[in-house]
Design a protein around this nucleic acid. Sequence first.
DNA 1: GATCGCTCGATTGTGTGCAATCCGATGGGC
DNA 2: GCCCATCGGATTGCACACAATCGAGCGATC
Lengths: 231, 231
Amino acid sequence: MANDTERVYRELRRSIVEGVEPPGARLTEQRLATRFECSRTPVREAVRRLESEGLIVVEPNRGAHVRPLTEDEIADLYEVRARLEAYAAELASVRAEPAERLALRAAADAFDGAAGAVIGRPDDIALVRRLDEANGAFHGAVLSMSRNRRVQTLVAAAVDAPLVFQALQRFDADELRRSCLFHHLITDAIAEGEAGRAGRLMTEHVLQGRDALLAHLSAVGGLGELFEVGA
Amino acid sequence: MANDTERVYRELRRSIVEGVEPPGARLTEQRLATRFECSRTPVREAVRRLESEGLIVVEPNRGAHVRPLTEDEIADLYEVRARLEAYAAELASVRAEPAERLALRAAADAFDGAAGAVIGRPDDIALVRRLDEANGAFHGAVLSMSRNRRVQTLVAAAVDAPLVFQALQRFDADELRRSCLFHHLITDAIAEGEAGRAGRLMTEHVLQGRDALLAHLSAVGGLGELFEVGA
DNA sequence: GATCGCTCGATTGTGTGCAATCCGATGGGC
DNA sequence: GCCCATCGGATTGCACACAATCGAGCGATC
């Protein structure tokens, strides 16, 4: 099935999340239409959808840009996410069924494998993508075990942002190993039905991600050095 | 400025939130275009935006419906909201400036006034709307004091849902007075910088809203009695 | 009588043209 | 030399037409 809107939405979204279109990049409907070989109509819809997700800002009659994020906004994003995912982990501890607990363990193991593969080869985009997917699968499993659809959609909206993917790409071996450890600790807590502990661990885990990203940013001299925001 | 998309979006949204378009109601682009006296293009954009907010479901090539909510989903909604607003209240306790604390007190007082006006006259839609706005102003003030934009947008997406407005409409005097009390208790906690207490009070306040809505629903025999979901 | 296939109406999906709007550049006035 | 009005290109906002798609209902067949 050739649904242009959906196709443009997914590909453009990926370009933004992975940083191919850097924050601040200008996105005109006409150029995107040419690039995706369709008319402006489906492009327009995809752009509006990304706007309502907060990945893009559209200035009326002026054009759309990939939304530039300040360090404060990155911190906000991770902190809200920490709250929501901690809540999901608490619910999961209470509501999960045996089969789901096993699947969660499997997801944690799969992340271990993807992390092992990426260590020492951070330039292999395919491996990073696999790591990103494994990470998404683990967190997605917790969310799904929470049985709260609303929290799932809200986290989905808060999880994909520019820079997050690149952050994963820049994680060093220590950070990756710590993530693996946290995933297993969280899995244990959920398996044992210890909601409070699961929530606290998840909070710490997400905030660790925030700190890692912010540390990398300041190490390279801030956002401005990475991207020409005004370009 | 006559921006049709924006106009259609706002008016249609209000119709849905206030229950003029009941859950399950069918919304075809052509009919909406006629109703709003414009072409299908802006209608389409407004519908898609409402879809991404979760107020509408669009079945491909089939048509759009106001999203029917189950009681479970209503509970989910309020519980997520409780977490997010509690977080905002904690942040506000730490970050708010004196002028904002005064403004919050004023918002709580304004809600008292609107609640007093609506008691005994629950059929006056204008009064209920004012109450809804006063409530939104209070909660919005807390969110704004949190200095976390992300939590503001997420709560905004979680706060407007079908039935919530009607719930307010059905609140009896006791429930309204309890809301007033909670608003002032929360204001006090924030003013005194007691983050933990502010968060706990906010949680309780939002969950009280959930219980009131669910109680009213079961009192009238469940969702099915209120609306023909399949219609 | 039940089931399958077909046609048809309704609705969305997409392409395209034109009008409205905005920013920047340019030129004249002071 | 500086400032303001004006003009032009670029871009979105909207309308409309046509194509694609889906399900419902009808009729033929077994």
